[in-house]
Design a protein around this nucleic acid. Structure first.
Length: 455
RNA sequence: GUGGCCAUAGCUCAGUUGGUUAGAGCAUCAGAUUGUGGUUCUGAGGGUCGUGGGUUCGAGCCCCAUUGGCCACCCCA
């Protein structure tokens, strides 16, 4: 065998037939739930103009954007410009003479761009879902890839909390259908901003959220250390500590939060929103957890924030989202509020694989394999196969007359449940030996009645 | 971007303090078996030991570099 010396770019993967079937199972399940709630599909290009993406994901995010080199850099008339641009890029600045396009980093910003561009023609509230790959120049590790799919649903043009309620139910419904046990964590950015206000100023907001988001990972002491490093004083840290130590049932947590932050406008508003949300979701209490330590990295969130954690498995969040007041403002169209959620498809796949949650049926494609046992036999088999296909039953005719041994093994490997054997004996009587390969049982039936058999 | 561990057949892995021709299981192919697979038995193919350099009489093993994988940090889905 020739030595194959090719490889894949770091952090990317091929998806073989089995894997694609499982992935489609996940995606179709989620898509169906989206459709059920009136969301419409949208697709945007793999690449965007650099300025659409830059500066939208924070300093760290900018570094992780995959940039696309311009064409024609070696053209003599461009060489000087390209060299100058390269110098600038080395200094950490982008330059259009070297790169003016980049691969999309998430689906939310391209969506905001789309809404901004089409605001005149869209019917609001506009509800869309989008399932496409995104790219990040991150170093791969467990549950983290350089190319991965996001599966987002957003509603823009509505301030109603009803949207949050529906999105929460979409999460719960989709994961229930997939058989994945989850906890849906909820918090509200307004509460976090009230906390920042109590600690001396809204300019501390980012420092506080970044630090407390790590609580479950590094523990309280380390969080306090980090807060100190980020320039907060002991009095302020004490307030944050009392905030973080809030525990109990959702109701108890809300009461304690009221005592701490209820006299600040944004805190009061945030707590009210959480209360309303919970009161509308009373049918699903056990999976909903208020988590005041939940902060979410993306800074454009302004209200409710969500995060989905799978139970019984070591894995980062498998979904997240939240409300943003003014995402399209970035593209010159202010005052279009929105709220959205995202499913981490690749991580959901890994979780389902680890917990063995894929149903048996996802493996089967072809239902019937017609054996090829000679020229005349296969002609008849071919006709029969066409009749089954006309009925919508996926089937195959073995590609050449070969040993039965081989044909059985082919069926076994492809997980085909039925073998239809038409040999010289069957040919004479116009019948077919139909064998169920899972049980080993076989029956003879008329070829003419094959399309009516319930496979 | 920073750090740790790893890389031997298609896959999972052995390979002794550096020593002759690098092994096993699974998988593949062929035969035992001319119309009944999954079991069993027999046999075969398959490797410049990730790549490049170095040390040595001699390197799969030691050293350096490089690429890739896994894991942690940063960040995130």
């Amino acid at each position: 065998m020739a030595k194959v010396n090719v490889s894949l770019p770091q952090g990317t993967r091929d998806f073989g037939p089995e894997v694609v079937r499982k992935r489609n199972y996940i995606l179709n399940t989620i898509r169906n739930v989206f459709e059920l709630y009136g969301f419409q599909p949208l697709e945007t290009p793999a690449m965007e103009n650099m300025e659409t993406l830059m500066g939208k994901y924070g300093e760290e995010g900018d570094k992780l954007i995959f940039k696309i080199l311009n064409n024609g850099l070696n053209d003599p008339k461009n060489i000087d410009k390209a060299k100058a641009a390269f110098e600038k890029v080395i200094e950490g600045k982008n330059d259009k003479n070297l790169t003016e396009r980049a691969l999309r980093y998430d689906l939310t910003i391209p969506f905001a761009r789309y809404v901004a561009m089409n605001q005149g023609t869209l019917t609001f509230p506009f509800k869309r879902y989008q399932v496409q790959p995104v790219w990040r120049a991150d170093r791969p590790q467990k549950g983290r890839y350089r190319e991965f799919y996001q599966c987002d649903a957003d509603v823009v043009g509505s301030n109603s909390l009803l949207n949050e309620v529906e999105l929460a139910i979409i999460y719960l419904t989709a994961f229930k259908k997939l058989g994945v046990a989850i906890e849906l964590k909820i918090n509200n950015r307004k509460i976090l901003s009230a906390l920042a206000e109590r600690c001396g100023g809204s300019d501390k907001m980012t420092d506080i959220t970044v630090a407390i988001d790590k609580l479950d990972k590094i523990g309280l002491e380390k969080v306090k250390e980090e807060l100190l490093q980020r320039g907060l004083n002991n009095e302020q840290i004490e307030i944050i500590e009392s905030y973080l130590s809030i525990d109990g049932s959702n109701e108890e947590k809300l009461n304690k939060a009221k005592q701490l932050l209820g006299n600040i406008d944004s805190g009061k508003k945030g707590i009210e929103e959480l209360e309303t949300l919970l009161s509308l979701l009373t049918a699903h209490p056990s999976q909903l957890t208020i988590d005041f330590t939940l902060a979410r990295g993306l800074n454009y969130y302004t209200g409710t924030i969500f995060e989905v954690k799978a139970n019984n498995v070591q894995m980062g969040s498998i979904g997240g989202g939240g409300r943003y007041d003014d995402l399209t403002g970035l593209f010159g169209v202010p005052n279009i509020p929105g709220v959205g959620i995202s499913f981490g498809v690749d991580r959901i796949y890994d979780v389902m694989e680890e917990l063995k949650l894929f149903p048996e049926e996802v493996h089967t494609g072809t239902q019937v394999l017609f054996f090829n046992l000679g020229e005349n036999e296969s002609r008849l088999a071919f006709t029969a196969a066409q009749q089954l296909r006309a009925k919508g039953i996926p089937c195959e005719l073995y590609h050449e007359a070969g040993k039965m041994d081989k044909q059985f093994k082919y069926a076994e490997k492809k997980n085909i449940p039925y073998a239809a054997i038409i040999g010289s004996n069957e040919l004479k009587e116009n019948i077919c030996t139909l064998k169920d390969l899972r049980t080993g049982e076989q029956t003879k039936i008329l070829i003419a009645s094959l399309p009516d058999y319930s496979f």
